[in-house]
Design a protein around this nucleic acid. Structure first.
Length: 264
DNA sequence: CGATTATGATTAA
DNA sequence: TAATCCTAATCGC
């Protein structure tokens, strides 16, 4: 279950494992049979992420657009790979490594023009060099929506999902129900900076770990998922022990600490 | 073994 | 807001 860090990590790993070599492509599940046939025998020129969207530039002549949605996952197999399960939408095999994609929300071969069209619908990505904090700040400051909803809106910041929105607001001490336009400029800047920091840590770990000891260089051993967050799906704040509050916001559930995150 | 849930997002109502 | 898409792990019976 992916947020932006997962997709950036995938782009990195796919580039490392598959870029430049001739690849076999197939669709055991069948729903991408036509696309896989088109890709088969070609090369991965480059894998790239923007937010939760993955683009595979193919040689010759193809752009593959993949969005994992809630259930999508890639699995990596050193050669020789096991037989694919029935759910594998796309299998890409190089000499040494095979990657299996299952459950994606989107997996399609698109004309190259689609690249700009899709990216135009997305806000700045804190993990990309071209992710512009000023655009994020302007969109937040212009909105009457609560910041907890804005962080899930991919037009505001691409890549943040339900775990990170809760954790970023906790780490910056901002109550999720405060309106974007009611935030001080320093608070908006801090939210962007914390987003970038947490997503970067997520890429490095390939896992969301936002509790204090989760600093680089001090890896948490066997960080169990239930212990990796401060407020997300927690009953008590992992920093102060206060009962965590929660509510539905923008169609998902959000959690916050009533001590660390107060309304003005 | 069926129901539920999940780090997502679009479409319809 | 609700229904829908997709998969897999988990939970209750």
């Amino acid at each position: 279950m992916p947020e932006g860090h997962t997709i950036h990590r995938l782009a990195k790993d796919l580039n490392r494992d598959l870029r430049g070599a001739k690849l076999a492509a197939s669709s055991p599940q069948g729903r991408f049979a036509e696309g896989a046939a088109l890709l088969d025998g070609g090369q991965l020129r480059r894998a790239e992420a923007h937010g939760k969207h993955l683009f595979l530039w193919w040689r010759p002549d193809a752009l593959v657009h993949i969005h994992l949605g809630l259930a999508g996952v890639w699995r990596r197999w050193p050669a020789p790979p096991p037989p694919p399960t029935a759910a594998v939408r796309l299998r890409l095999s190089g000499a040494a490594v095979t990657w299996d994609l299952s459950g994606p929300n989107q997996c399609a071969v698109l004309p190259p023009t689609a690249y700009q069209e899709i990216r135009a619908r997305l806000g700045p990505d804190p993990l990309r060099r071209d992710g512009d904090p000023a655009v994020f700040a302007a969109r937040v400051a212009a909105s009457a929506q609560p910041i907890g909803a804005l962080l899930l809106d991919q037009r505001v910041a691409a890549g943040v999902g339900n775990v990170y929105r809760a954790e970023i607001l906790f780490l910056t001490g901002v109550h999720p129900l405060r309106a974007g336009r009611a935030l001080r400029a320093e608070e908006i800047d801090a939210i962007w900076a914390e987003s970038a920091r947490q997503l970067r840590l997520g890429v490095r770990r390939n896992k969301i770990v936002t509790i204090d000891r989760g600093e680089l260089g001090k890896p948490i051993k066997e960080a169990v998922r239930a212990e990796a967050t401060n407020v997300y799906q927690q009953e008590r704040c992992r920093r102060c022990g206060a009962a965590v509050a929660s509510a539905g916001l923008a169609g998902r559930r959000i959690w916050w600490c009533p001590e660390h995150q107060q309304l003005p």
